[in-house]
Design a protein around this nucleic acid. Structure first.
Lengths: 107, 107
DNA sequence: CCTACCTATCAAGTTTTCTTGATAGGTTTA
DNA sequence: TAAACCTATCAAGAAAACTTGATAGGTAGG
C-alpha cells in the first residue's frame, strides 16, 4: 500500500485514534511488549469496558492487532500502519512548495 | 524541540487536527501555496464561519500559521510541526521491541 | 466619516465521541 | 456440567466537537 493510495478515511481513522491520551498510553505500553486486556486494565487503572472501547478504536484504525490465546486476548502494535501515517506526514515535508499567496481577487 | 519533549497535549491536539476530512483538504490546498480565508471558502465551498472554526483548530495545533495583510488573513503550513509528529511516529518504528506477552498472572 | 469588505467570535442547536454499569459469549477449571 | 474467568458489546447518559446564523472588530475605499 502506497501513501498516494491512502483513503482519507484511513487517515481520519488513524489520526483520530492517535488523538486521545489514554490511547496514546496504551500504545506506549505496547511498545515494550504484547499485553492482554486485564494487564492493561491494571497498568492503566481503567475499567475493562472503557479499555475495550479504546482498543477497538485502535484496532479499527489498524494501529494494533489482536491474538487470542485461551480466554486471553493479546494486543500488539501494527507498525506497518504507523509507517503509513508517518509517510503521509513525511510527504508534506518532501513535496510541499511554500509559495506566497497569489493576491486574492476580491475587491 | 525534540520528540522526547513532546507533551501528550501537543500530540493529542496535532493528531486531532489531522482527523477531519475538511481539515485534511485545507492542508492539501496549502501544500501548493498560501491562501486567504475567502479563497479557501470558494475552493472548498464551505461557509466562512465553518472555515474559521477549522482554521483555528489547525492553528491551535500549530500545523498552520497566519499572516495578516490589509484585511486579508493568509494561512500557510507550518512544516516544522508536521516534522514533529512525523518523528513521533517514526520513533515507533525505530524504538519498538515486539516482544510476545509474558503470560498473564491471572488464575 | 461612512460604507463595504474580510475575518473571528459567539450562542444555540446538532452530531459525534466517550463513559458507565450491566449483560452475554466463549474458554478453562473443578 | 457447573462455576469462574476474560473480554466484547449494548443501552443510556455525559461530554466534547461540530454546524449554523448572527454579530462585532478591524481595514480599505469613496
Amino acid at each position: 500500500m502506497t501513501v498516494s493510495s491512502l483513503e482519507p478515511t484511513t487517515l481520519k481513522a488513524g489520526f483520530h485514534a492517535l488523538s486521545d491520551t489514554l490511547r496514546l498510553q496504551i500504545l506506549e505500553l505496547l511498545r515494550s511488549q504484547e499485553y492482554c486486556v486485564c494487564d492493561l486494565c491494571n497498568l492503566l487503572e481503567v475499567s475493562q469496558s472503557k479499555l475495550s472501547f479504546h482498543l477497538k478504536t485502535l484496532k479499527d484504525a489498524n494501529l494494533i492487532q489482536s491474538r487470542q490465546e485461551g480466554r486471553w486476548m493479546y494486543y500488539s502494535l501494527n507498525l506497518a500502519q504507523f509507517a503509513l501515517l508517518e509517510q503521509y506526514l513525511a510527504d508534506y515535508r518532501r513535496f510541499t512548495t511554500l509559495r506566497p499567496a497569489t493576491p486574492c481577487e476580491n475587491p
